[in-house]
């Protein structure tokens, strides 16, 4: 063969560059292709569009609560009485597992709006109806694993790590709220 050692090496370097370059280019494409196959499982456009609902709260009397469905999840809307508000305000925030003042959790003290899903493993706590077991703190009680929530929906006892979530909501008027 007439090729010198140098020419050989140069040739093989060029080859390696071509192989690695092609491999890298193909890998980038493969990686990009994966995304649509994954993203298709995320909430679709029709689900995202259901993001907000308006609720008429005028029929809810003091001491009553209603449950509405928002994004497929129950939302508790409770018309609290003076004693409940007082009870919720008295608590020493520093002693709580998830420290939060009652005023941080409400827009108007008499209306408590929260996602009715226990932050432990996703059950719906009892306490919406008058006859329900409301737990040791007179709020909500999750029957699945025994989490107790107070009148502000804060976790007081049991395995749940956080207070019941407060969704984004606003008062459209005195009798109407918009969730989401």
């Amino acid at each position: 063969m007439t090729a010198t050692m140098d020419e050989h090496q140069e040739g093989s370097t060029r080859r390696n560059f071509l192989y690695i370059g092609t491999g890298a280019f193909a890998s980038v494409g493969m990686a990009a292709v994966i995304w649509p196959f994954v993203d298709q499982m995320n909430p679709d456009a029709s689900q995202k569009a259901l993001a907000s609902i308006e609720v008429d709260i005028s029929p809810v009397a003091v001491g009553q609560a209603i449950t509405v469905l928002w994004r497929g999840k129950p939302v508790f809307i409770r018309h609290r009485g003076a004693s409940e508000i007082e009870e919720a305000g008295k608590v020493d925030v520093a002693s709580l597992r998830d420290p939060q003042k009652d005023s941080e959790r409400t827009k108007k003290p008499e209306w408590l709006v929260m996602v009715g899903i226990c932050t432990h493993l996703g059950c719906v706590p009892n306490g919406q109806k008058t006859g329900d077991v409301k737990g040791d703190y007179n709020g909500w009680f999750c029957p699945c694993h025994g989490s107790h929530y107070d009148t502000s929906g804060r976790i007081r006892k049991g395995p749940a790590p956080r207070n019941l979530d407060v969704p984004d909501y606003s008062f459209v008027s005195d009798t109407k709220i918009k969730i989401g």
Binding site: P36, F37, Q40, D44, Q47
Partner: peptide, 9 residues
């Protein structure tokens, strides 16, 4: 129409 990338798939 609605599913993410549904038209492509």
């Amino acid at each position: 129409r609605d599913v993410n990338w549904g038209w492509l798939l």
